[in-house]
Write a protein that binds this DNA or RNA. Structure first.
Length: 114
DNA sequence: ACTTTGACTATAA
DNA sequence: GTTATAGCCAAAG
């Protein structure tokens, strides 16, 4: 039995959905939680396949380590990502998440280490 | 099966 | 503070 998904991507989606509102995380944190700490790029790539139309995954809560909205360009319209984050209570300025350290959500830590 | 890519990260200058 | 380069892993072409 495999309680976990075999697909790397599927796991990324689940973790992203687990991100609490008003919080943000980095690709590396998710990748590390998945077991592949070096696959931060894969996390972003997984989100690239994300269906933009049905906003089922809060990808806007996932930013790079600098708190920069690196994937904002991949959203339907530019500024969409910023709007979504601000709508959740996250202050975004110049495509950068304010108080990123404070809003940072570490799956390994918040989910209670596995 | 090999090459290229990519919403990253870390270190160096 | 920024810019440049290397390392990294997994999927798509």
């Amino acid at each position: 039995m495999k309680p976990e998904k075999d697909n790397f991507f599927a796991r990324v989606y689940e973790v992203v959905q687990l991100i609490p509102k008003g919080r943000v995380t980095s690709y590396g944190a998710i990748a590390r939680y998945l077991g592949s700490k070096g696959s931060a790029r894969m996390v972003g790539w997984a989100l690239t396949q994300l269906p933009v139309q049905p906003n089922i995954i809060p990808a806007q809560r996932v930013v790079n380590r600098n708190g920069l909205l690196s994937g904002k360009h991949h959203f339907g319209l530019e500024g969409q990502m910023k709007s979504l984050l601000e709508s959740e209570g996250v202050s975004v300025e110049n495509d950068m998440v304010q108080d990123f350290e404070k809003l940072f959500w570490d799956p390994e830590k918040e989910l209670g280490l596995v």
